[in-house]
């Protein structure tokens, strides 16, 4: 699971008001190279919760992202590379996503987050 996905997901358990952001429980992180695609990154940047991305990438062991970012920084290749690395190259291969309100763990195995709810959560 890449951090772009993490940025989009929330716990949707019945009754949970604040299911975002999910806490990351790291089991195993892998890095896979992704070619820089500035157009795509610019497109996604507008939709991101950037603060959540910074925190998440720290949890995954990558602390090079600047704390604050604004659209003008997308012109800098250095920033694009960092964004690309945090957003697309870091994978949570094993671990879990934890609901911030209930502590319910959504397991991540073989890179696939299992977001399906149990019977008593729907």
């Amino acid at each position: 699971m890449r951090l772009l996905t993490h940025n989009m997901l929330a716990s949707n358990i019945k009754g949970v008001a604040n299911g975002f952001p999910l806490k990351i429980e790291v089991g195993q992180v892998v890095e896979k190279h992704v070619d820089l695609n500035p157009e795509f990154l610019k497109n996604m940047f507008a939709k991101l919760d950037y603060k959540v991305l910074v925190e998440a990438s720290k949890t995954m062991g990558y602390a090079d992202l600047p704390e604050q970012a604004e659209p003008s920084m997308l012109e800098s290749e250095d920033f694009l590379r960092k964004l690309n690395h945090a957003l697309l190259e870091l994978h949570l291969e094993e671990g879990a996503l934890v609901c911030p309100e209930t502590g319910r763990k959504f397991p991540v195995n073989k890179g696939i987050p299992n977001m399906l709810l149990h019977e008593d959560e729907v």
């Binding site: 997901l9 929330a10 299911g19 987050p113």
Partner: peptide, 24 residues
């Protein structure tokens, strides 16, 4: 081909997208 950005297990009836996420 480039790998999918993500694959996940989710129910289309109760999609796990964060509140406020739209037009992506």
């Amino acid at each position: 081909l480039p790998m999918p950005i993500s694959l996940l297990r989710a129910d289309n009836n109760l999609p796990p997208w964060r509140p406020g996420l739209k037009e992506i």
